[in-house]
Design a protein around this nucleic acid. Structure first.
Length: 770
DNA sequence: ACTTAGTAAATTCTC
DNA sequence: TTTACTAAGT
């Protein structure tokens, strides 16, 4: 391909696009031919470069259908398309392919499914389905779940797949008994999925590779279709993704990858930093472009981020700088416990919103683990601050929603065994475990699918007549609506079919608040299908289900509404906010306990903090708590070692004097004899507690005044006596009728004056003595 | 076969 | 604290 500086039909020359860009950006945009490696520091206008690059290509006359952009989230892909449409106008970008590896590959695989032994209606299994399949296989093989935890097996199988190790290779390399067993499970698992016409997430990559390797004609078609490839977040791709991209790019070699090794945070799920480090070796003619000017953050924030990341030994050379203002210093909140931390975070945000005129959508609270969201959430709710959480228990993870989706999946692919087992007795139809065991056993023995066996249930011995009828009814519903599929639009079909399954009815008659909630969720899901169908006339049930299966937390459409965003730092990748709070900077939590001893893990945690800090545009607040509830138990902790790594000049004065005695000033383990105790242990407290800045006393919300029975009290046992009169914020006054348990798990049974009897955890229920 | 109560385990991150 | 699995009761 040769460059033609010809204006496109809209009459604007391509070079106009370069006007607002700095030299490095312009180079990254205009080097359209051949391999390009863009090392893009945080906030260096990476997204802008990517979109301009595509727009530039299109202006140069490249057919948008020849462009493939692989992004990290669907949201990023969508945004990219919109921006490009904006730049080049009209529908030009519509035929361009943009999406995550998984969604793009799923699309390709549907097209060529028959080449690799699937039908185009294959099902995509999520982690839960995987777990269910693995447990079923272990059951079938008689492997105890006590001896070999299914979760661990799932992890090992997934790791193997991400490294492109087949079950045959895995078995060959297995030494220990556990590995041999895992290998056996691996084999049966693969067979079970194939039988179910289903793929797990890893298969979407592996099967694409298989398709390209074994079918040269398909490879060539795809190479010719995707003449220009872009890969975003390249540092977080794994070997399988690398392999697939390499094959696709082989013919035209127009491969542009964008990444930042400092932001590589997915090593644990197979991301291989070699992909970025070896790029130049694999493509000797590579043009390397470094984007080093940061347009996002203040000098202070950038300096803080830099002071942290430079502690890592392995990283590509680059020096980020910014022409932005110095900005506010970073605030450090030192708190007594997680509840106080949450209250202080909430209070700080509210005051900043007031003082600086931020709106809530400008604010994000980031944390290391999802579990931390609970306390923060409570505090925000108490102070009436609007927020929303990305991830956690999302809508699509709810039982009733998953059940509904499973029913829908069966309509498209009745061989989907995991879905059958999930819903066959939901609502209860009198088809129990014994029956299902027999059916599965029969299916395995006769190399048949569970659905086929159920369809001919008479042939299975030892099934009760009543059960046979139930099974027939169940199969009847599916086949009946399957036949209607060609005639009905997906939304109305789904509506009628789900109604016929009796699932909504079951919840509706239960009348409890929870059941009605569930019923409501099913309705919402069905409404959503209607919506999506209205948006896209050509929507099929297959497309819809795929879209849901490949949804990620970062795709949450609620982002950008007038609320504080709460999420893990992983989920925050690619986002930015004027005000960012990072909570829970404690040893053992961030970095996680597991990473404290392992340098590699520690460096990954440090990169994660780097990602967190660089999400902030104007202001950054960090916090830690001296003690925190974990598993309902109070544990002590020291401030994170990372706090000591942040350049002192970046911290606000009050914080600076406080950090004068943080771990960096004194070696953490100085004097402390090596113990096996985790950093959360009480021992750690006595060693380092006194070195810590004492947090300013914070008047906590609703501190119970009473002594006897009251909230979390770490010191001494909480005691309450039978006959004690107490008051509860919700239930009102009452009398303690019984006490059970000790310490943190001490429970009191209270007969309230309203007539209600409740058993309450004394440590958590905010009871007041009267 | 289904319900319920009781206990064990979990909390790292995800397409 | 919440969730998930197991065991015993109906």
């Amino acid at each position: 391909m040769t460059l033609k500086l010809m204006p496109m039909n809209d009459g604007v020359p391509a070079s106009d696009l370069l006007n607002g860009l700095n030299p490095a950006q312009a180079e990254a945009v205009s080097t359209t031919e051949g391999p390009v490696l863009i090392i893009a520091g945080a906030g260096s206008g990476k997204t802008r470069v990517l979109t301009f690059r595509v727009a530039y290509l299109l202006r140069m006359g490249v057919n948008p259908a020849h462009v493939l952009a692989l992004t990290f989230t669907n949201r990023a892909a969508q945004e990219m398309k919109e921006r490009i449409s904006h730049l080049v106008g009209g529908n030009t970008a519509r035929t361009m392919w943009a999406g995550t590896f998984h969604s793009i590959f799923a699309r390709i695989l549907r097209q060529y499914a028959d080449r690799i032994g699937y039908t185009p209606s294959f099902t995509i299994y999520d982690t839960d389905d995987q777990g269910a399949a693995i447990k079923a296989v272990m059951n079938q093989l008689g492997v105890s779940q006590q001896v070999l935890p299914p979760n661990g097996v799932r992890g090992r199988i997934s790791t193997a797949k991400n490294s492109m190790i087949s079950w045959q290779e895995y078995v060959r390399g297995a030494d220990s008994i556990a590995e041999k067993q895992t290998g056996q499970i691996f084999e049966e698992y693969e067979k079970r999925l194939a039988q179910s016409n289903a793929m797990d997430f890893d298969d979407l990559l592996l099967n694409t590779i298989k398709l390209l390797e074994h079918h040269p004609d398909v490879l060539e078609i795809l190479q010719d279709r995707f003449r220009y490839l872009l890969v975003d977040e390249y540092q977080d791709t794994n070997r399988a993704q690398y392999r697939a991209v390499t094959m696709l790019a082989q013919k035209y070699r127009n491969l542009c990858v964008v990444g930042d090794d400092a932001q590589s945070i997915y090593r644990w799920r197979g991301a291989d930093i070699r992909n970025i480090l070896d790029f130049e070796r694999d493509y000797p003619e590579t043009k390397v472009v470094r984007l080093e000017q940061n347009y996002r953050s203040t000098k202070t924030i950038l300096a803080a981020a830099d002071s942290v990341i430079k502690r890592n030994t392995k990283q590509l050379k680059k020096q980020l700088f910014t022409e932005n203002v110095e900005g506010e210093k970073i605030t450090l909140l030192a708190c007594r416990d997680d509840r106080e931390e949450a209250d202080m975070v909430a209070k700080t945000i509210r005051s900043r919103v007031e003082k600086y005129g931020y709106s809530y959508k400008d604010v994000a609270i980031l944390y290391r683990t999802n579990a931390q969201s609970q306390a923060l959430e409570d505090a925000l709710r108490r102070s009436n601050t609007p927020y929303h959480i990305l991830s956690g228990v999302s809508f699509y993870k709810r039982k009733e929603v998953k059940d509904t989706l499973a029913y829908l999946r069966l309509l498209v692919n009745p061989n989907d065994t995991e879905s059958i087992l999930r819903v066959i007795n939901e609502p209860a139809r009198g088809i129990g475990n014994t029956t299902l065991e027999r059916v599965q056993e029969y299916a395995v023995r006769n190399n048949s699918t569970v659905f086929d066996v159920l369809s001919n249930i008479e042939v299975v011995p030892n099934i009760q007549t009543r059960t046979v009828k139930s099974v027939k009814d169940f199969i009847g519903i599916i086949t009946r609506y399957q036949e209607m599929m060609p005639e009905l639009a997906p939304a109305s079909l789904a509506q009628a079919y789900i109604e016929a399954t009796g699932l909504p009815h079951m919840y509706k008659v239960q009348q409890s608040e929870e059941a009605l909630d569930r019923w409501n969720n099913i309705e919402r899901l069905l409404d959503h299908i209607v919506e999506q169908q209205d948006l896209d006339e050509s929507l099929t049930l297959i497309n819809y289900l795929e879209q849901i299966a490949l949804l990620s937390d970062a795709d949450d459409p609620k982002l950008g509404t007038e609320r504080i965003a709460m999420m893990t730092m992983h989920a925050a990748k690619g986002l930015e906010f004027p005000l960012v709070v990072i909570a829970g900077l404690e040893q053992g939590l961030f970095p996680l306990a597991k990473a404290e001893a392992d340098m590699q893990e520690q460096e990954e945690e440090r990169r994660l903090l780097y990602v967190g800090i660089t999400r902030a545009r104007e202001q950054l607040v960090l916090s830690y708590a001296e003690r925190r509830y974990r598993f309902g138990e109070l544990v002590f902790s020291r401030p994170s070692m990372f706090l000591g790594e942040i350049d002192k000049d970046c911290l606000a004065p009050s914080a600076r004097s406080m950090t004068g005695s943080t771990p960096s000033a004194k070696p953490q383990h100085a004097g402390a004899s090596p113990t096996k105790q985790s950093s959360y242990s009480q021992v750690a407290q006595s060693e380092t507690y006194s070195q810590l800045p004492m947090p300013k006393r914070y008047t906590s919300v609703s501190q119970p005044k009473a002594r006897g029975v009251q909230g979390p009290a770490p010191e001494g046992p909480t005691t309450s006596t039978v006959g004690q009169r107490v008051k509860h914020p919700m239930f009102g006054a009452g009398t303690v009728t019984a006490v059970s348990g000790t310490g943190q798990s001490e429970k009191a049974t209270v007969m309230f004056d309203s007539g209600q009897k409740k058993q309450l955890m004394i440590a958590f229920a905010r009871l007041e003595t009267l």
